Simulated assay, not measured.
Amino acid sequence: MQALVVTAKGKLELKEVEKPVISDGEILVQVEYVALNPTDWKHRDSVSPAGVILGCDFCGTIVESKSSRPKGQRVAGWVHGGKFPDQGSFAQYIRVAGDRVFTATDLKPESAATFGIGYFTAAMALFNDQKLPYPPAAQEGWFFVGGGSSSVGLFVTQLARIVGYKVIATASPHSFDIVKAHGANRVVDYHDPKSALDEIKKVTDDGIVAGLECIGDLDGVQLAVDSFGPKGGPLTQIIPPPKEVRPRPEVPLDHRILLYTAQGYEFEFIPGQPKMPAKPEDLKWFTDFCERSPEFIEKHDIKGNPVDLRQGLENINQGLDEMKAGKVSGKKLVYKIA
């Protein structure tokens, strides 16, 4: 099969490689669509060793199964791309555990491909890290989203509204409409942090009680911390906060998640740094949420990211370069593979 393989730091090559062989509990998926994430170009440039297949998000059809899932079923999900020589979504076929995907027969396949890293990170923040109950239980107050036009931001805005929060998000003005269309009650321009903070405090009546910061830069994290009301609350981060952030005791900076831990195994994330330990509790949550997802998505009319549809494995590297250069906002680059 053909796959995009890391050949050196910052370099990808379309190669002919062996089709993956599945084990008990796994499925082999013929990949039809893949979606790009910032983690893909970061792995390409600084994390992945040579010889591994890149890519996380995918949608496709099961062609072999050693799990309870039947052949011919359309599924979607994500894998730890850029880590293994026989598992990455930027390929014609992918092997994955049958309980770590969700049935995607009721979604357009190009949209289903966007329900990967972004969707599951947003859900992990709310339902695993912040321990929120699933609907119909309802929350009160305001939820802060830093980076509202990002893939994670667009998903968490919808999920926060579903569980009862009012949502205020930061974004560039050109993305205001798309963030509002995904459920934000208010969107604020982050470029002037002082003006943004004043607006947030006024709109929410100093009532922010929880949040997710998606970008990780100093101004953005500081704005998130300062935006909380006097009682504080959980602020989940998907990127380690800069050391220069001025903390508040009522807004602890220890709510850090990394979606890859949901796969349930120990792994080295950054070369040379201590390994991330296996977290069985994250895997348990992940498999449960995969099972919930088809009904959850349909019942709550969760929208996938807006799609910029393109063609071919051979063109993905260009898309990664566009993302790295900051040329992609408010949309998801999706590539048709088959």
Rank of each mutant, 00 (worst) to 15 (best):
G116E: 01
E26H: 05
S149P: 14
R100I: 08
T61E: 04
D57S: 13
S150V: 03
G81N: 10
A137Y: 09
T114E: 02
A91Q: 09
G148D: 09
L28I: 12
C59I: 09
S68K: 15
S150L: 09
D24E: 15
V156S: 03
A138E: 13
G88Q: 00
H43T: 06
A125H: 02
S149K: 06
R74C: 02
S23D: 14
L126I: 11
E110T: 01
G60P: 14
A113N: 05
F90G: 05
H43D: 01
S149E: 03
F143N: 03
V79R: 05
K131N: 10
F127D: 02
K42I: 06
A113C: 01
F84Y: 13
E26L: 08
Y134G: 10
F58T: 11
F90M: 08
W41M: 00
F84W: 09
G141W: 09
T121L: 07
H43K: 13
V29A: 03
V145K: 13
S111P: 05
G116V: 05
V29H: 09
Q30L: 05
H80K: 15
A125N: 04
T61H: 07
A76P: 12
G55D: 06
D86F: 14
D86H: 15
T114G: 03
G88M: 00
V75N: 03
G146L: 05
A91K: 08
I62K: 14
L154M: 13
P38I: 06
G88C: 01
S67D: 04
G116T: 01
M124K: 10
K42E: 07
D45M: 02
V34T: 14
S68W: 15
